[in-house]
């Protein structure tokens, strides 16, 4: 630890602030292409949470806590779970059963792809569920990493 508290050196801080938006974009790419390529909500959410962990390593838990509070991350996570359950129950009301893929065949998200490359708006409710799970994993894992980092800092004193 240097005089900056729990921050690392200026080189690590610069590299982390360059890599953080790239990691978030990659995480969003993996989440939104979950129905086309390998990956999905859980994997992309883990990538986004590791971006937040990189910020915590480089800038310290105190600084990151000032920028994003773990309560807001927790609210984000609960919002993801709520979207998942609401889409599932909509399948119950608009189609046959709970978690029915009721958007297949519709113009929005419902295109059944031909052979080869598929468009992004295919898959029915799968992109929405992927996005919900991604929100859940990003918010949950990031809040856990943040709150554990703060708790370990307070335990050292």
């Amino acid at each position: 630890m240097n005089e900056n508290g729990d921050r690392m050196s200026i080189i690590v801080q610069t590299i982390a602030s360059i890599l953080f938006p790239l990691a978030l974009i990659f995480s969003f790419y993996v989440i939104m292409h979950g129905h086309l390529t390998p990956g999905g909500g859980f994997q992309g959410g883990a990538i986004g949470a590791s971006a937040v962990a990189l910020l915590i390593v480089a800038f310290g838990a105190k600084y990151v806590e000032g920028k994003m509070e773990e309560e807001n991350l927790s609210i984000f996570e609960s919002l993801g779970g709520l979207v998942f359950v609401i889409v599932s129950i909509l399948g119950f009301f608009l189609a046959a059963t709970f978690l029915t893929n009721f958007l297949v065949g519709e113009p929005l998200f419902g295109i059944i792809p031909a052979w080869g490359e598929a468009p992004l708006n295919s898959g029915g409710v799968l992109p929405i569920l992927n996005l919900a799970v991604g929100m859940k994993v990003i918010g949950g894992l990031a809040s856990v990493v943040l709150i554990l980092a703060i708790a370990s800092k307070e335990g050292e004193k």
């Binding site: 129905h35 390998p38 297949v104 059944i112 898959g123 799968l126 992927n130």
Partner: peptide, 11 residues
């Protein structure tokens, strides 16, 4: 055909 998703694992 049933889910519209290209990735069978996700479906």
């Amino acid at each position: 055909n049933e889910t519209g998703a290209n990735n069978a694992v996700t479906s």
